[in-house]
Amino acid sequence: MTGTPVSRPRRPRRLLLVVAAGLLAVALIIDPIARHILAGGRILDLGVLELRLTYNTGVAFSMGSQLPTPLLLAVTGLITAGVGVYAWRSAPTSTWPTTAGLAAIFAGAAANVIDRTLDGKVTDYFHTGWFATFNLADTFLTCGVALLFIAMLTEARTETPKETTP
Rank of each mutant, 00 (worst) to 15 (best):
A81N: 04
G82V: 09
G82S: 11
N135L: 04
R116N: 02
G108S: 12
L136R: 08
A100C: 11
G108H: 05
A103G: 10
S90D: 13
V85I: 15
L136Q: 08
V83Y: 06
A100L: 07
G84P: 13
A137N: 05
I105V: 15
G108T: 13
T128V: 14
T99L: 11
D119H: 12
G101A: 02
A110M: 11
W130E: 01
Y125E: 03
H127Q: 09
W96N: 06
G82Y: 05
T117F: 09
A111P: 06
A132I: 09
A110T: 07
P97N: 02
N135A: 02
S90V: 15
A81F: 06
W88F: 10
T123D: 03
W88V: 07
A137S: 06
G84Q: 08
G129Y: 09
A103Y: 05
N135V: 10
I114K: 08
L118A: 12
V113N: 04
T80V: 10
G129R: 10
Y86R: 10
T98G: 09
S94W: 13
A100N: 06
F106Q: 01
I105M: 09
G82T: 06
P97L: 07
L102A: 11
V122D: 03
I114N: 06
F126P: 06
A110L: 15
A132G: 11
T98D: 06
R116I: 09
A91R: 14
T123G: 01
A100Y: 01
T123N: 05
A132K: 05
G84W: 11
T123Q: 01
K121T: 04
D124C: 00
R89M: 08
T99G: 04
G120P: 07
W130F: 11
V122H: 01
W130R: 09
G101S: 03
D115Q: 08
T117S: 10
D138R: 10
A110C: 05
T95S: 15
A107T: 13
R116T: 10
I105N: 07
I79V: 15
F106V: 10
W130T: 14
N112W: 07
R116F: 05
W130H: 10
L118N: 00
T123P: 06
